[in-house]
Amino acid sequence: MVKIVKDVVCPFCGCLCDDLEIMVEDGHIVGTRNACRIGHAKFMHFEGAVRYTEPLIREDKKEDFKKTDYDTAIEEAARLLVDSKLPLLYGFSSISCEAQREGILLGEDIGAIVDNTATV
């Protein structure tokens, strides 16, 4: 059974088109309506990209990644940020405002530079 989710806001570009219809079958997205090509690709995961579903870690950038759990990855990330003299938090443009708020407050906690893609 294909279920249609109506009035979906497109999370691709700054236009935020809000008239998308997304077809869902067995918990998977099978099609879109009213989306442009890039919006469609975001929902369908067409990019040919590799998606990570587990955190990865490595000491040396020349080594291969090792799989790890969220707790270890976040703990190590926190340690790197706390030990840093001047950390930089960059990006933030493809996440929700709620998440942006947490990220900015995190930056304040550690005395970081906080910047997004509008800087480019």
Binding site: G14, L16, S93, S96, C97, R101, A112, D115, T117
Partner: peptide, 29 residues
């Protein structure tokens, strides 16, 4: 301004609301 990612403006709004500045904020002091 045309925005690339979907929530570039959101970050500028949230950061302005929290700090008074839209981007490139330095908390080191």
């Amino acid at each position: 301004p045309m925005r690339g990612h979907y929530n570039v403006n959101g970050f500028n709004q949230v950061l302005s609301w929290l700090t008074g500045y839209p981007y490139a904020v330095d908390f080191s002091r």
